[in-house]
């Protein structure tokens, strides 16, 4: 029984190791996407280095150059980028 418990614990640990990188990859993909969106709007950023989720399809992006933007999808289906002070 103890062995089985230990095996299960190991299994959970291995799963955790696999799940964390997957989440990190999603985070990187989001940063890359927001970097592209800000660039498509012709706004300075360089690269998004941090993202905070404000709501669904609503993000606060912090850029490498110090700029901060709110990027969200409005009711008309347009992606809006607003510079934050």
């Amino acid at each position: 029984m103890n062995r089985l418990t230990a095996a299960l614990a190991q299994s959970v640990a291995v799963t955790a190791f696999l799940v964390v990188p997957s989440s990190a990859q999603n985070d990187e993909a989001l940063k890359k996407d927001l970097t592209a969106v800000i660039a498509l709007h012709g706004l300075p950023c360089g690269q998004v280095i941090d993202v905070a989720v404000l709501a669904e399809s609503d993000y606060a992006a912090s850029c490498k150059d110090g700029n901060r933007y709110r990027v969200y999808l409005n009711a008309e289906g347009r992606v809006i980028v607003e510079k934050q002070k």
Binding site: A29, K32, D33, L34, A36, V37, L73, R78
Partner: peptide, 8 residues
């Protein structure tokens, strides 16, 4: 292309 970029 990410989803937000596609919409943009």
């Amino acid at each position: 292309i990410g989803i937000f970029s596609k919409i943009t």
